[in-house]
């Protein structure tokens, strides 16, 4: 949420955005100031899909101080807190391809990673046995089912025909994947086999396609 950005920035961005939107001639309801900065989610997905170093740099800048504050609060040790920044951001880089919008907000995902790494760092420092780790205590939601999106959309009571209209606007490769999963109800594995693409490619196309659809429908993320 960027509600707290300096007012001047918001105004500048709103102006910029209006112009951009007019140029795109979209029918999306006019977004509020929060959409005016590239979202954490978009950055994280760029890091995951394209190994986008610029996007990673931006995430680093946005989150380093916050991770430091978390580390100070939990460890009360400046050295450890500084190590935590590197440790957490390394994990953000490594695991970015596993992130998708069904895992919730990027800041929530980064918080979870940072808290877990901090917990394990402290355990290691206190020489505690390693029969258990933070990821066992706070299991990362693995395999969050994209069916959640179905429910979201249903909850928004969007006309199906409208969604179909948006669906046609997706790039071919993404539309094929969304069709396999949401219309033909195939599993990720079946769809990847049918389309003859690797599972990872399928997942990232699905992620992008669903993100675009959501954006067009105006589902809050």
């Amino acid at each position: 949420m960027y509600r707290n950005y300096a007012k001047q920035d918001v105004i500048n961005n709103e102006v910029g955005l209006t112009v951009r939107l007019a140029a795109m001639n979209t029918t999306t309801p006019s977004p509020d100031a929060e959409d005016s900065v590239v979202s954490d989610e978009a950055l994280l997905i760029a890091v995951g899909n394209n190994q986008d170093v610029d996007a990673f740099n931006q995430l680093f800048t946005r989150f380093a101080k916050k991770i430091l504050a978390l580390g100070m609060k939990l460890t009360r040790n400046e050295q450890l807190a500084n190590d935590l920044i590197q440790e957490s951001m390394l994990n953000v880089w490594l695991k970015a391809p596993l992130y998708d919008l069904d895992k919730g907000s990027a800041k929530g995902w980064i918080f979870t990673l940072s808290r877990n790494r901090c917990f394990d760092m402290l355990r290691k420092q206190k020489r505690q046995p390693n029969c258990i780790s933070a990821d066992d205590i706070w299991p990362l939601e693995s395999g969050a089912e994209p069916t959640m999106v179905h429910e979201d959309i249903a909850g928004q009571q969007v006309e199906l025909s409208v969604i179909e209209g948006y669906f046609d606007k997706l790039p071919d490769s993404q539309r094929a994947v969304v069709e396999q999963i949401y219309i033909k109800d195939r599993t990720h594995e079946e769809a990847a086999a049918h389309l003859q693409i690797p599972l990872g490619t399928l997942k990232s196309r699905l992620r992008l396609g669903v993100a675009k659809l959501r954006n067009m429908i105006g589902v809050d993320q």
Partner: peptide, 28 residues
């Protein structure tokens, strides 16, 4: 946040440069 959230990318540039050399984890 502890200190004003100024751009600190410069301070971390070597860290970032090192991190992005690691291969990412592609599947769960």
């Amino acid at each position: 946040v502890l200190q004003p959230d100024q751009s600190s990318a410069a301070d971390y540039s070597s860290t970032v440069a090192r991190i992005v050399t690691y291969p990412q984890i592609k599947s769960e």
